[in-house]
Amino acid sequence: HPVNIPRREKDFQGMLEYKKEDELKLVKNLILELKPRGVAVNLIPGLPAYILFMCLRHADYNNDDQKVRTLLTSTINSIKKILKKRGDDFETVSFWLANTCRFLHCLKQYSGDEAFMKHNTQRQNEHSLSNFDLAEYRQVISDLAIQIYQQLIKCMENILQPMIVSGMLEHETIQGVSGVKPTGLRKRTSSIADEGTYTLDSILRQLGAFHSTMCQHGTDPELIKQVVKQQFYIIGAVTLNNLLLRKDMCSWSKGMQIRYNVSQLEEWLRDKGLMTCGAKETLEPLIQAAQLLQVKKKTDEDAEAICSMCLALTTAQIVKVLNLYTPVNEFEERVSVSFIRTIQTRLRDRCESPQLLMDTKMIYPVTFPFSPSSLALETIQIPSSLNLAFLTRV
């Protein structure tokens, strides 16, 4: 066994040497068998991406195009394979989205292209790829990141979906505003029956769990913003669609409850420093529907106010809410047919789709803004828990 003499970090060049025959072992141990919830919890964020890039640098340094190609292909295929196998596990998908993006950023940061070198230290510039231009592979990896992002959104949607109607519409946290329940309200009165139902708190806790997982994995802040905007869109769209289909959700008190719930979601955004990510704006149709439940709906002036307020709702949606509106007590009345006709006349000239329900499957296009890292590759050490002792620091 050779004696391991510790070398000073400045003597390393930020590369990892491996034998061709160890490539399968590398992707197996680092990608296929790595458990984001186990070993990976204590890793520096993006470590698998840095390790793979440092291996790639060594193949590039040796001018071995075949080794570069097979490593990139094995890496991409292994990431796809693990996502096929564990694609319904949010932590796995988030972990590989963060690492795929980090790998993509490394390919840019060390590409030698001046546009990506602006923030590099001199030492980092010395670590640029020497022999190969991997621009085409960067495109493939960017496509892979888009696929992983879409999978992350689906995964998150599967978790959130069952909570939304219960937490945003059915569960009442404001006591005593309902008065007489509108007919058809399916509120359970027994506290035992309430156990196991989702509340707004369940949604907020889940959003917090998604957020902290992504932060822990070193996901780019710009990407987190896009995920959160998409989450809020889904919450808003599913809530509004259910409101548009359920008479028992169209009352003054439900409007109050929804506005309170929206304020709590906004509070969550503020707490996470995400007020400018566009998430709040995705709730606008829901906010306006809640306001519509609460405003007066009688005179021509009321009709005018409604038409200038509900710009994020389609005519079909406005008319549907007015038709479904159900008084909760004897002081209120149903919306008159003539009032609804007035609204329809006023909105006749609007250019819009006749769409009633929102598309809950819509996904905003994602971008991965370049995010260079200040980490010095030569300082990276590989924890023994990764079982990569066959890699040699160079």
Partner: peptide
């Protein structure tokens, strides 16, 4: 400053890689 330009490595598309991957997956049970 570099003395010579880097060599562009042609890459298959993600879809092409997927096709390549099918034969690979058939091997595993």
């Amino acid at each position: 400053p570099r003395s010579r330009p880097r060599v562009l490595l042609k890459a298959p598309t993600l879809a092409e890689m997927e096709e390549m991957n099918i034969s690979e997956e058939e091997e595993s049970p």
